[in-house]
Amino acid sequence: MLTLGILHSTIRADEKLLIEAAEKNKIRVSLIDVRNELFNPQTYKPTFDIALERCISTIKGMYATQFLESTGISVINCSKVAAVCEDKFLTSLALEKARVPTPKFALVFTLEQAIKAIEQLGGFPVVVKPNLGSWGRLLAKINDMDALEAILEHKDVLGSPQQKAFYFQQYIKKPGRDIRVFTIDGRAICAIYRDSTHWITNTARGGVATNCLVTKEISAISQNAAKAVGGGILAMDIFETKEGLTINEINHTMEFKNSEKPTNVSISGEIIKYCIKVFRS
């Protein structure tokens, strides 16, 4: 019987759904809290056949993935996909290279270059985001020069080294919602609208999830975006604009607990089936 190692740090409702789905698909689960692991290639003895990376910590998840891959164990998602998706600048570059619609963006290290970048992006407002981060945290919509100076100074003085690489994105005015599409193996399996009166629509920030029909347009852009970053199990955040759909971000260890009910799709079940498929192939 196949044993799936679920790499985690905390156990969220999402991981419990995965455990339940694994039981339904008759595969064993080995829960691996990466914080308790000792990744020494000379001594490590895995207790599983294939791994699913579900760490809440991006950095710990990446090291665990790279270590296991070095020992010959397949990890979903693989480190190449994770490296692109965990960094918003690298995601934007991958989408740009593959000509997948995405908001205009630029990365700079100084205020002087930031002013030039904002001009190139079409002027204020713009959004500044941490390259590494999630749940809508530390995002700022910058409406004018005063705010720009204040935010960059704060990041420069108080931030970690990563916060000192300033990633700017063109501000996209949304119709009070965005779309999150869940793709597995390049196929959009379901989608939700995330409605919010706030410009940040993450469900972690109060966005309300309702079912969104996967149209041909949604399916096509998701497929192209998945291909651009290397495929696997992904969640795409999509904006609706007058010019059509545009990919905002791509998540590689997505949370889905609030999306199974509105979509009536067992996302956890689809994830487990994909892990079985990867193992058998």
Binding site: S57, T58, L132, G133, S134, S160, Q162, N251
Partner: peptide
């Protein structure tokens, strides 16, 4: 956070604070 489960006895400790790289 649940630290240990031992014969239905469950030990809890304070959960770690959210860190900068936490998320999805």
């Amino acid at each position: 956070v649940v630290e240990r489960i031992n014969e239905m006895k469950i030990a809890l400790s304070k959960a770690p604070a959210v860190e900068e790289d936490w998320g999805e």
